[in-house]
Design a protein around this nucleic acid. Sequence first.
DNA 1: TCTGATTGTAATGCTATATAACAATACGCA
DNA 2: TGCGTATTGTTATATAGCATTACAATCAGA
Lengths: 159, 159
Amino acid sequence: MKHPPKARGPRPGSIARVEGLSYGDLDEHFGYVLRRAQLAGFEAFHRATERLDITPARYTALTIVGANPGLTQSALGTALGTARSGAMMVVNWMEKRGLVERRNRPDDARSWGLYLTGRGETKLRDLNRRVRANDAAFAARLKPRERQTLRKLLGKLCG
Amino acid sequence: MKHPPKARGPRPGSIARVEGLSYGDLDEHFGYVLRRAQLAGFEAFHRATERLDITPARYTALTIVGANPGLTQSALGTALGTARSGAMMVVNWMEKRGLVERRNRPDDARSWGLYLTGRGETKLRDLNRRVRANDAAFAARLKPRERQTLRKLLGKLCG
DNA sequence: TCTGATTGTAATGCTATATAACAATACGCA
DNA sequence: TGCGTATTGTTATATAGCATTACAATCAGA
């Protein structure tokens, strides 16, 4: 599958608006509004995990391995939407810190089975706590009911 | 201001979910859900502008210049959230295609004033049409009322 | 058994960005 | 007025996060 263009991370920008500048009808476009919100989300995540050397992708990887013990690196790659080489780098990172271990698979000698270590589970729980707390702060502008609605609509949007 | 980490484009992944895989409680986190939605938005934008050599950032730049005639490159940079050098490259790109022109400013010889050319305005109108049409397709899963709600909540989220 | 596909890995390349340095110009203050 | 400092556009360089390619080992199917 051909991937969409680039547009990597916090590229199109920080979120802060420039006062006294007109943004045309950018706010009418879903893509733009979603992008802004997502960047705010990245910054929130960054604040929540400061100095922990974690990234959204790493956090996602940790979660998915935790939820699917014995997962293959390739499978992790497709779950993350990256090539196998990318998955390998994340796994290397996690293994180096003792969060994940690669075990041989009895049925297929080509691939590893990925498992969270005890340390990895602890780490994941800690991260979850932080992210959850930060989500609350991040979405503080919304009433509980609105947050629920927002999550529901976003879920519906990308099927 | 220190920028958050990297996390360029389609990092945490394409959108397609892997069947039979558990995603833990990723869906509870705003950051993740927003990211997924935003990636879907990127893909939609990509489809809407296929073969036009446009990117979200370029489209945003074009819009902002159009909405703020005489804008400075630095101002455009901060509006886009990039460094001046980044703004320059976008402007170079736009100028090369005759969409934007740099005019001298009477009050400040250091900076240019950016203006859409006639061609630029036409281009922008065309892009707007495409993006708007595609937004409709993109958000087709939502009822009109829901789209409106979503846009409102997202706007509220990043204030 | 032979052919083709899949897996992890390593080496390399690419792209969009930041960063740093520079010259020209503007601004503030004595 | 003059001088130090800040800002602007520009260029060159660095960097991060990927993809791409190539490879050997292994598996699966005819």
